[in-house]
């Protein structure tokens, strides 16, 4: 789906260095790392918003690549209703703006009756749900999320994580999920990557075995072990600075 080959990225100083990464179609991958390690830059490279200074970012297997991007802030347009926010990508791609499709996505993110509301009438969690619906409406096959749930409380956060997982399990798009939270990364993904800081390098990679029930997984000894293992790697990544 997505390949990073020997990717370097330099702004004023080196941000990312020697990134080699292959992400398979339908995979759910999380990226962890200290602040300023280039996690967001990695997403910008993946979405073609930025070009690497050296190396190559390319996509395989998908001719009709459709990228959905969920920012840290919901990034809604306050002058549009919830429904109009969700249909935006269809409008921009000159596809017929389908009200039914937007309503279906709103229902799937749990905002059935909110289509006529304006963003300032929603809670933080609801706004993020609109943002997710908007990123998926265009037949998205690569979803990039940049710390989307960082500003939410624990309960809201867990609900959104579960809803995102449920949609992903049905739609099987590829996910690249950037987060600060170790437990969130382990809970959500099939694979966790750890970046070190200054410049960002991939220092660790962990495949997460899939349990039938996430509840069971989160209570398991394995979850705790992986958690402390990744935490140690993160800490040493910071110390390398």
């Amino acid at each position: 789906m997505l390949n990073f080959s020997n990717v370097h990225m330099k702004f004023d100083k080196d941000v990312l260095s020697d990134i080699n990464l292959k992400i398979d179609s339908g995979e759910f991958v999380s990226i962890l790392g200290p602040s300023g390690c280039g996690k967001s830059t990695l997403l910008r490279l993946a979405s073609n918003l930025a070009k690497p200074t050296k190396g190559l970012v390319d996509y395989t297997s998908h001719k009709d690549l459709s990228i959905g991007f969920v920012f840290q802030n919901p990034t809604l347009m306050p002058w549009r209703t919830v429904l109009e926010n969700v249909t935006l990508p269809l409008e921009l791609n000159k596809k017929k703006s389908s009200r039914e499709e937007a309503l279906m996505w709103l229902a799937r993110v749990g905002l059935k009756d909110k289509e006529k509301s304006y963003p300032n009438e929603l809670s933080g969690g609801q706004m993020m749900r609109v943002s997710i619906a908007r990123s998926l409406i265009n037949g998205c096959n690569l979803l990039l999320l940049d710390e989307p749930f960082a500003a939410l409380d624990e309960i809201t956060r867990r609900k959104l994580e579960d809803d995102l997982l449920e949609i992903w399990e049905k739609e099987k798009f590829t996910v690249l999920f950037v987060t600060h939270s170790v437990s969130e990364a382990i809970y959500l993904s099939q694979r966790v990557l750890v970046l070190s800081s200054g410049p960002g390098k991939l220092v660790y990679e962990k495949n997460i075995s899939q349990y039938n029930s996430k509840e069971e997984f989160i209570g398991s000894k394995e979850f705790q072990t992986i958690n402390s293992e990744i935490f140690e790697k993160l800490k040493s990544g910071v110390n390398n600075e």
Partner: peptide, 27 residues
């Protein structure tokens, strides 16, 4: 105009006209 909204329009390959009419002017 919000930087992320601009990026959203870029990702969706919006034309200059679309960006003007649907983003810059309303914003």
């Amino acid at each position: 105009v919000d930087k992320n909204l601009k990026e959203l329009f870029l990702i969706n390959r919006a034309s200059k006209w679309q960006t003007l009419m649907k983003l810059n002017l309303p914003y």
